[in-house]
Amino acid sequence: ATNIVGKVKWYNSTKNFGFIEQDNGGKDVFVHKSAVDAAGLHSLEEGQDVIFDLEEKQGKAYAVNLRIK
């Protein structure tokens, strides 16, 4: 899925991951530091509006192509 809109539920910059809540009511999506770095960001803030693509690997969904809304 592409261009999914959501809000950062939480992001832990020490542990380098967090979760994004989808605006469409879907399951929360894992986001890793690598996606944050690829977006040219240092971190994510709770409540921040983002747009992302959804990829699945080994049955787990995660956010890629992250951008600030």
Score class of each variant (00 low, 15 high):
residue 30 F to T: 02
residue 26 G to P: 11
residue 1 A to P: 14
residue 25 G to F: 10
residue 18 G to M: 01
residue 2 T to L: 12
residue 27 K to C: 04
residue 12 N to W: 09
residue 60 K to S: 11
residue 46 E to H: 15
residue 14 T to V: 11
residue 17 F to Q: 03
residue 36 V to N: 02
residue 23 D to W: 15
residue 10 W to I: 04
residue 49 D to H: 15
residue 1 A to M: 12
residue 68 I to N: 11
residue 37 D to R: 14
residue 49 D to W: 15
residue 63 A to R: 00
residue 26 G to E: 13
residue 51 I to Q: 08
residue 31 V to I: 10
residue 9 K to Y: 02
residue 18 G to V: 01
residue 69 K to Y: 06
residue 43 S to N: 14
residue 53 D to R: 02
residue 12 N to K: 14
residue 19 F to Y: 06
residue 61 A to H: 11
residue 27 K to W: 09
residue 24 N to R: 08
residue 55 E to K: 09
residue 61 A to I: 12
residue 61 A to L: 12
residue 57 K to H: 12
residue 55 E to P: 02
residue 59 G to V: 06
residue 51 I to R: 12
residue 45 E to Y: 15
residue 67 R to Y: 11
residue 40 G to I: 03
residue 42 H to K: 11
residue 25 G to Q: 10
residue 29 V to E: 01
residue 30 F to Q: 02
residue 49 D to Q: 15
residue 35 A to P: 01
residue 26 G to V: 11
residue 52 F to Q: 00
residue 37 D to G: 12
residue 34 S to C: 04
residue 30 F to C: 03
residue 51 I to V: 10
residue 45 E to G: 12
residue 58 Q to L: 13
residue 52 F to T: 02
residue 62 Y to P: 01
residue 66 L to W: 00
residue 57 K to G: 12
residue 9 K to F: 03
residue 41 L to T: 06
residue 19 F to K: 03
residue 68 I to P: 13
residue 67 R to M: 10
residue 61 A to Q: 12
residue 7 K to I: 06
residue 15 K to L: 14
residue 30 F to I: 04
residue 18 G to P: 00
residue 19 F to W: 13
residue 42 H to D: 08
residue 53 D to Y: 03
residue 62 Y to G: 07
residue 3 N to C: 05
residue 3 N to K: 06
residue 42 H to L: 11
residue 60 K to Q: 10
residue 38 A to H: 09
residue 3 N to L: 05
residue 4 I to K: 11
residue 20 I to G: 00
residue 11 Y to S: 01
residue 12 N to G: 04
residue 18 G to H: 00
residue 49 D to V: 15
residue 51 I to T: 14
residue 60 K to I: 07
residue 18 G to T: 01
residue 33 K to H: 07
residue 23 D to P: 15
residue 24 N to D: 07
residue 40 G to S: 09
residue 21 E to Q: 13
residue 17 F to S: 03
residue 28 D to T: 05
